[in-house]
Design a protein around this nucleic acid. Structure first.
Lengths: 242, 242
DNA sequence: CAGATTATGTCAGTCACTGACATTCGGCAA
DNA sequence: TTGCCGAATGTCAGTGACTGACATAATCTG
């Protein structure tokens, strides 16, 4: 079902070490579909690429395509989904001493850096994920699907944060609020990336993310025109972190 | 073209005050389509309602439906879109003395309250918008479309904030960050609403939104655990917020 | 090797959405 | 009123995403 990608850090219930021929072939066609779709999308655009084209490029039937991916969006977002899953994994392993916000921030930075170092090019590489991000922004249905994915991830983050801090997310709103804020800051950074392409490569993206996080405090506190003014009523009067 | 709703605060180039029969009929069929779609969606679900059904319920051709709405999602989100537009209008009129965050917060509260008072029931009412919100959450493509709309609104908010504070949003990241944070807090409140339906009506929603905003500071600042507490307890009742 | 699983192909069908063209209707001036 | 123009609508045909049903072929298991 959710046999997305066999990361080296696989779950312990893998049992059989050799996946068997059947599993291997499945993974193989899946990868081929992602690869072919990716090339076609970047070459001729998302909307102008039909599922039939992708399927016949890998020499499978259209029906088979839809057995691997629920819809056309999914194959486009497969690479990004992988990265997001790795982020979740990173978050799980953050030390308990860290502040929730610190843990989140450290996790994305680590995720981007690791994936950037792992595979600089080829299918499923970070650079292709970055290319994808630009494509997503101007393919309406793709953007929509991506945003939906992101909010699903947010739910997971809420659960992890609540568990980590020993809170009931129904009682305490902080996990939900922080997860939402975190997600939106990330999205703002992504948007900024697609707008002006100055910072190249994964490291550029990391820098961009850090810059956005640094603005979190200043953006929420007081007036902007006169920095250091008295904090307004009803606003979080805390100073920016770090 | 973008003849969504004839608000009393119309643009000055309205010229003729009487819209003319043609315009009136157009608005009429548009309303009828929204109304019919709304009833069908709530009655038998979004996915199980076809565009043909909606069209023939209003006695127009399917083609005409698609001349009013770009897709099936749009007619479902029409009511919410109206509310969002009103929020933007409110934001425009906030006094300059307010902090950006204050202005945003005051605007949604005002928007919800005004719309709640204006029309308590009937087509385009707030209560139906609230009903819609629940429907949105479990119709994947609808949720996706809604999220896309929200991010478009966010862009507008960025522009307004930057203009209001006299900043260049490409230089200063604060407008983008705050807009993103604001949007996500709202979304968290919406999710919370759909989860447990305790607070009834528009006022309940306003309360919920306020509660979430109040958690913005606490969520971002420092550790959540009270000194001496260990994670994994999972018990509420400690560190009660607000 | 036989039989149970499982992936895949084929086919038919639904539904969202679009372009092209004909028709009808409201606005407006002679 | 008449008659014309443009806008709104209807009709039709077509594309493309996606699904259910069933048959076939490939793996796995004993």
């Amino acid at each position: 079902m959710a046999a997305r990608t066999p990361r080296p850090t696989g779950t312990p219930e893998d049992l059989g070490r050799t996946p068997g021929l059947r599993e291997r072939k499945k993974q193989q066609t899946r990868d081929a579909l992602v690869q072919a779709a990716h090339e076609l999308f970047l070459g001729q655009g998302f909307a102008r690429t039909t599922v039939d084209e992708i399927a016949s490029a890998v020499d499978v039937s259209q029906r088979t395509f839809f057995r691997y991916f629920a819809n056309k969006d999914e194959v486009a977002l497969a690479v990004m989904a992988e990265a997001e899953d790795y982020f979740i994994e990173c978050l799980h392993h953050r030390p308990a001493e860290e502040t929730p916000l610190q843990a989140l921030r450290a996790s994305i930075v680590k995720a981007w850096r690791d994936l950037g170092n792992a595979r600089a090019s080829g299918p499923g590489s970070i650079t292709s994920a970055l290319e994808l991000m630009r494509m997503i922004e101007d393919a309406p249905t793709l953007l929509a699907a991506h945003l939906r994915r992101v909010t699903e991830q947010e739910r997971i983050v809420v659960r992890i944060l609540a568990e980590r801090e020993g809170l009931d997310p129904r009682e305490d709103l902080r996990p939900a609020v922080l997860a939402a804020v975190f997600g939106s800051v990330l999205r703002a950074a992504h948007l900024s990336w697609t707008a002006d392409r100055e910072p190249e490569g994964p490291e550029g993206m990391i820098t961009l993310i850090e810059r956005h996080f640094d603005q979190l405090g200043p953006a929420l506190t007081g007036h902007w025109r006169t920095p250091g003014q008295h904090p307004g009523a009803g606003t979080p009067g805390d100073t920016p972190p770090s």
